[in-house]
Design a protein around this nucleic acid. Structure first.
Lengths: 207, 207
DNA sequence: CCCGAACCTGAGCAAGCGCTTAGTGCATCG
DNA sequence: CGATGCACTAAGCGCTTGCTCAGGTTCGGG
């Protein structure tokens, strides 16, 4: 009697990718790219992980690069959505910044395989595809910069170099995808909490 | 009358690599690996950049992987040396931490091509070589953790989670290699200064 | 003046790569 | 029931890859 089994549901990891074979291939590719890197992964490896023949990949994707682009695009969209939603949740600049960092880090840790591909394989994209992704990153940058500016204006933050500090905050969050390990001691939630606190200390005015 | 032209001088970037052909190949490899990544770089590309034939590479290095290992090993040694030297320069924990971050970041920005290879291509190493490099990283970790512990004991720092904060500080420094651009607005010195300040704020007790 | 060692190249091998093509199995429809 | 369309595979094409090897060049020492 549950109406829950809806494969196009937006909160299912790759629910927007259809049909099922295309999604299975994409999930396999994320796994392989995260593990070995884009260039070290073969189309045979991807197809094998999805339980299909190498040729099946080319029915759903024109090239291996297009597959990377689909992953990168959807992943960046999701990351930006998580960040934006948190920043718009209201409250003081400090609360908004903490929530933004907490959510963004939680995503990079919890979905660290996707995040690793999304953040570290941009150079493997074609020129046009890379340009499209870079634009999405600029928007993430704008979100954080906006919160910092608000906090400086209200006097809650003391940030001498807003662009530089924006860079540092995003860099800190993104790099979580590199080192986070599922078998480590910390949960994504714990890392998010720790990082939100550290970032707040970086920007808060002393009084 | 200058006695300066000593190719084995330790402060020349790759002075420890001899003979000259081996060094030229290694420098070419650093360039190529930083630009495209290890797996996307061909031995022909490396040899071509060094102005030699593909076969020349195999006179000086057994495999492409050994070349990466040499780069990784020397680079990590240098990074660790920079960090250790700064941390031992004396002063309060705050001064030592600031100097450590300043130096470490300066190195990652100024030598960002080397740093990128060193920090982001570990997975391309063989198991034994990777283990060797991981050990060097543990030592970098120990240096930063030591300073934080000293600061907490003296009451100068307020750090609830020393291992977690150590991770964050190193992560922040290392990720500089990913985004730093020579054509950007900031010099390695400026980034080092900014980051030293941000890290101090992260850990300082308020009073 | 010639030898041997060190260094380097031209040519190319076996393996693996991304991707294509011809054909098969299967659901759908008049 | 045969025809049509679609997802998929087996086989393999053309090319590039990491790496090898026979042979040539250079040069200090006897």
């Amino acid at each position: 009697m549950t109406a829950a089994q809806d494969t196009t549901a937006e909160d299912v990891p790759w629910g927007e990718v259809a049909p099922e074979a295309a999604r299975k291939l994409l999930v396999a590719a994320v796994e392989a790219f995260a593990e070995r890197g884009y260039h070290a992964t073969t189309t045979r490896d991807i197809a094998g992980r999805a339980g299909m023949s190498p040729a099946a990949l080319y029915i759903h994707y024109k090239t291996k690069e297009e597959l990377l682009h689909r992953i990168s695009r959807i992943g960046h969209d999701k990351a930006l959505e998580v960040l934006s939603a948190a920043s718009e949740r209201g409250g003081s600049p400090g609360e908004r910044l903490a929530e933004a960092v907490r959510s963004f880090v939680r995503w990079h840790a919890g979905r660290h395989d996707t995040a690793r591909v999304v953040q570290y394989e941009i150079d493997a994209l074609s020129e046009e595809h890379r340009a499209e992704i870079v634009e999405l990153r600029r928007r993430s940058d704008a979100v954080v910069r906006g919160i910092l500016r608000d906090g400086v204006e209200s006097g809650e933050f003391d940030v001498p170099d807003v662009p530089g500090t924006t860079l540092a905050v995003l860099s800190l969050c993104i790099d979580v995808a590199r080192w986070f390990n599922v078998r480590g001691r910390r949960s994504p939630e714990e890392v998010g909490e720790l990082y939100a606190d550290l970032v707040l200390r970086m920007v808060s005015a002393r009084n």
